[in-house]
Each structure stands twice: as structure tokens, then as C-alpha cells.
């Protein structure tokens, strides 16, 4: 895990240096004098060799110093931490919503394979996967806020504010998960031990819930962890559509303000969160399937 985190820091650091031309010119804008540029280059240590710059940046990041925003002069970490709860609230609600929808739909589809309900839910899932998040968000605003007047258009506040963004963000994940749960369940139901359980005369519900589900869920758990990057990506877009004051919206605003330290900080924190989620999935994996052991 450590080499991957180190690699991630190299990628994040390099993005800053991808910019064609002088990064200080972008940071300072058109009206900067030569002296401004020289001073900023000196302050940021941009004339040192790249590996030295990287190590200096890394040693600061490890101590929690992500630099200061060019735009607001605030410490980057403080800005991100202020926004993190909003993003966490949105992504977790979306995640839970997607599980609540996907697992029953996927299981039901597998159990009632080839029924009309199965075909309908899988067609719905394909639509869910194919729908652009930003468009879905706008259409939900159009329908539920403008036409029906049920929910606020944007912003963060009570549950009414949360519902549309959470559904929007959760939809594609739910669709993906429902498809996966279905195929994983189908795979499991075909196993010999399920036939044995049935032939013992167990009630179908017990066979499905106690015997099949636990094994069918193993691959699903991995996908849940892999869903997290997708959710964070979707959060950037969803937050923009619904003016949700989270990290994603801060990232977009910072991009247009050329506030690179903030962008850099957000990308790094999101990547580290994703790595931690994968670790969590590995741990859950061993819990669900005792045959798997990591030494």
C-alpha cells in the first residue's frame, strides 16, 4: 500500500508540472510583473531540481501541510476539511441508497430469472448505467423542483436538500451493483450445495438468504469498494449540478480560479480515501469468506 500511496503522490505532484509554460504565470494571471513572477518562483522553490521540489512538497504533505490557496490564502487542508462533511454526507447517502435498491433488485432478478420483472429491472439497470449523471440531476430538478415543487433546487440543509443529489449520485452505482448481484446470485444458485440445501427440504427463503446470499455477496463487496472512485467522480458532477457545498464543487471552483494547490490537495485526498476503501474491502472480504487469508 505504501508504494501505491507514494506513486499517487508522484502523480499528483506531476500534474502541477504538466502545465505548459510557467505555472506562476498561470497562478498570477496576465497582470503579473516580472518581479512578481521571480518572487513567486523563489517562494515556491520552482528553480530547484524537480526531485528536490517533490521531496520538499512530500515532506510538507506528510505533516499535513498542503500549502495555501492562491485565491483565498487559507490553508488548503482547512478548506478541504470544511467541505469534507458535505461530500461524505452525499456519498454515503448515495452509497446506502444504491445498496438498498441494488441488492433486493439483483437478488429478486436472479431468483425470478427470465421473468418480466427480471427483464424490466435489468433494462432499468442498463438505462441507469447509461444515463449521464449531470443530465439526470437536471431532469430531477426540472421534475421535482420546478414542475412538482416538492424539493429545493439546490444547496445543503435538511433531508429535502439531500434527496435529489443522493438519488442522482446513487443511480448509476445501483444499476451496476444490481447487475452484478444478479449474475453473482445466478452463479451461486447453480452450485451443488444449493441443490443439497433444497433437497434437504429447506424453505426457498432460507436457501436464498442463509446459503446463497452470503457467498454471492463476496464479489459484490469488492465492487462496492471499487464503486467509491466512481462515486467520488460522480460527486464532483452532482455537487456542481445541485450547488452542493462539498469538495467536488470546491475542486471545480478552484480549477476555474487556477488555484492549483487546492486542486492538488483534493485529488490527493480523494485518491488516499479510495486506497483506504480498497483496504477495507480486502478486510471485509476475509470476514465474508474465511477461505481467503492475507498473510
Amino acid at each position: 500500500m505504501v508504494p501505491i500511496i507514494l506513486g499517487v503522490t508522484i502523480v499528483v505532484f506531476s500534474i502541477m508540472h504538466l502545465a505548459p509554460g510557467d505555472p506562476t504565470a498561470i497562478m498570477l494571471g496576465d497582470r503579473a510583473t516580472l518581479q512578481d513572477v521571480v518572487e513567486l518562483r523563489d517562494r515556491l522553490g520552482l528553480d530547484d531540481p524537480i526531485p528536490i521540489q517533490y521531496l520538499r512538497w512530500l515532506s510538507r504533505v506528510v505533516r499535513g501541510d498542503f500549502g495555501r490557496s492562491i485565491h483565498t490564502r487559507q490553508p488548503v487542508l482547512d478548506m478541504i476539511l470544511q467541505r469534507l462533511p458535505a461530500t461524505a454526507e452525499l456519498t454515503f447517502t448515495a452509497l446506502i441508497l444504491s445498496w438498498l435498491i441494488a441488492l433486493p433488485v439483483g437478488i429478486f432478478s436472479a431468483v425470478k430469472r427470465n421473468s418480466i420483472a427480471d427483464h424490466a429491472s435489468m433494462a432499468g439497470a442498463l438505462f441507469g448505467v447509461s444515463m449521464p449523471v449531470f443530465w439526470q440531476g437536471l431532469m430531477m430538478i426540472l421534475l421535482f423542483s420546478f414542475i412538482l415543487g416538492w424539493t429545493p433546487i439546490s444547496g445543503r440543509g435538511n433531508i429535502n436538500h439531500l434527496i435529489l443529489p443522493a438519488i442522482t449520485l446513487g443511480t448509476s452505482g445501483a444499476a451496476l451493483l444490481a447487475r452484478l448481484t444478479r449474475s453473482s446470485m445466478l452463479e451461486t444458485i447453480r452450485q451443488d450445495y444449493i441443490t443439497t440445501a433444497r433437497s434437504k427440504g429447506l424453505v426457498e427463503r432460507i436457501v436464498i438468504v442463509k446459503h446463497a446470499l452470503k457467498n454471492a455477496l463476496i464479489p459484490v463487496v469488492t465492487i462496492m469498494a471499487l464503486q467509491l472512485p466512481v462515486l467520488f467522480g460522480g460527486a464532483v458532477i452532482t455537487e456542481t449540478v445541485f450547488a452542493w457545498p462539498g469538495m467536488g464543487r470546491l475542486m471545480i471552483a478552484s480549477i476555474f480560479n487556477h488555484d492549483f494547490p487546492v486542486v492538488q490537495g483534493i485529488v490527493l485526498i480523494i485518491a488516499i480515501l479510495v486506497i483506504l476503501a480498497n483496504l477495507l474491502a480486502d478486510i471485509l472480504y476475509t470476514f465474508l469468506d474465511p477461505r481467503i487469508r492475507y498473510d
Binding site: I4, V8, V11, V12, I15, L18, P229, V230, L231, F232, G233, G234, V236, I237, M251, I252, I255, V263, Q264, I266, V267, I270, A271, V274, I275, N278
Partner: peptide, 12 residues
């Protein structure tokens, strides 16, 4: 793959 594609693409 540790980066959400859209986030990394946005940054780049």
C-alpha cells in the same frame, strides 16, 4: 486506478 477517472481527468 486509485484515482477516480473523472477527478484525475479534471485535474489534467
Amino acid at each position: 486506478i486509485a484515482f477516480p477517472a473523472i477527478v484525475l481527468a479534471l485535474a489534467i
